[in-house]
Design a protein around this nucleic acid. Structure first.
Lengths: 189, 189
DNA sequence: GATAAATTTTGATCTATATCAAATTATTTA
DNA sequence: TAAATAATTTGATATAGATCAAAATTTATC
């Protein structure tokens, strides 16, 4: 799969041929239909997913309410987030929003690959750096931006989101009531 | 020097002797007095700091207002955050809150060490993982916790903070008005 | 130790967004 | 295509926390 190597090189950093082939041998490439679940709350076996194609959402349940934690699109890595790092049972459900093609690697395989291949460890570091930048952006915009600005910046970043995710999910991701988002949309016409 | 190796091993992961000695040769250990600045807005030469002793705050200016972005204590790494990763000029001032002993490494040295020593790259990955967990916690508590709960959880995590940081700084870090924090304290008596 | 400066507290008012409830509109299903 | 279900919009009301202003307290300076 030269395709994956290229995507990784373009969006993260380049890997040695050996690393790539080793990674792929120890992973699975799976096709999912829209609406299928990649991961469920409570799972102890964490995976690292690489989205070759399609888009997904990750959510958890808080007080019986579904809370969208993040969206991910083509060329993004995704995991069960926090719990992947802390090794606790996953809090998240991860569900496709479209038909997807996904490369899946078990967490312990990831760790082995990191130990064995310095460049793979580097890839992970680059990936984590990107996650931090995103989180930071979220913290800052929560603090200084109005709900409307945050919505607009989300749509600007992921124009596709309005087509793939229902209004309630977008509101939940932004941490606002869906009625509020609906009013924002109305005011934008 | 062995002291640092131990602190790193205890809080992050253990490093080879060679890596440690290489790291230290290429870094500086500096004593700062309370109130001194480690880094200034606009700097293009980023550094990675390791807090051997003491505590610091990082802030930036937004609309003429000082916004505390994070606090760091003994055994924490700190950088000019976002801009360290994106390579943009720093947005932050980093200032000591007490007398400090700090290990400073230039960013390009860090990158060289990462290339040369696989275990150093691993250390950085572990550090970044911790940053992500913290950011995530901030995003989630912003979404679901009252201001009072967030304040209490901060104090619980860093009991020292009430002694080292003024009320206005703590409020700013929590993203609330200082009057609000003052009222919370009053209600807690 | 008196004066000035900085920090914290208290009070009054305002506002963005939440919440609750109901009405529309869009999407599935049979 | 009608009926059922789900998603979105609209309206009315409530509230946490912001903002503005001033008083009180603490800390620094001469």
């Amino acid at each position: 799969m030269n395709e994956i190597a290229d995507k990784i090189a373009l969006n993260y950093c380049s890997l040695n041929k050996l690393t790539i082939s080793n990674w792929e041998t120890k992973s699975k490439i799976i096709e999912y239909k829209k609406g299928e679940q990649l991961a469920k709350e409570g799972q102890r076996r964490h995976k690292l997913f690489f989205l070759i194609k399609g888009s997904v959402k990750a959510y958890y349940i808080n007080n019986d309410k579904k809370i969208i934690d993040y969206f991910a699109f083509e060329n993004d890595f995704i995991t069960s987030s926090s719990s992947y790092l802390t090794n606790e049972p996953s809090l998240h459900f991860i569900q496709t929003m479209e038909d997807c093609l996904i490369l899946e690697t078990e967490k312990n395989t990831v760790e082995l690959l990191c130990e064995k291949h310095h460049d793979f460890e580097h890839l992970l570091r680059v990936f984590l750096s990107k996650v931090i930048i995103q989180y930071r952006h979220r913290v800052v915009s929560h603090q200084f931006k109005t709900v409307k600005q945050r919505y607009e910046s989300l749509v600007k970043q992921y124009p596709k989101i309005e087509l793939t995710a229902p209004l309630g999910d977008i509101a939940s991701f932004l941490g606002i009531a869906q009625e509020t988002l609906s009013r924002i949309r109305a005011s934008n016409k």
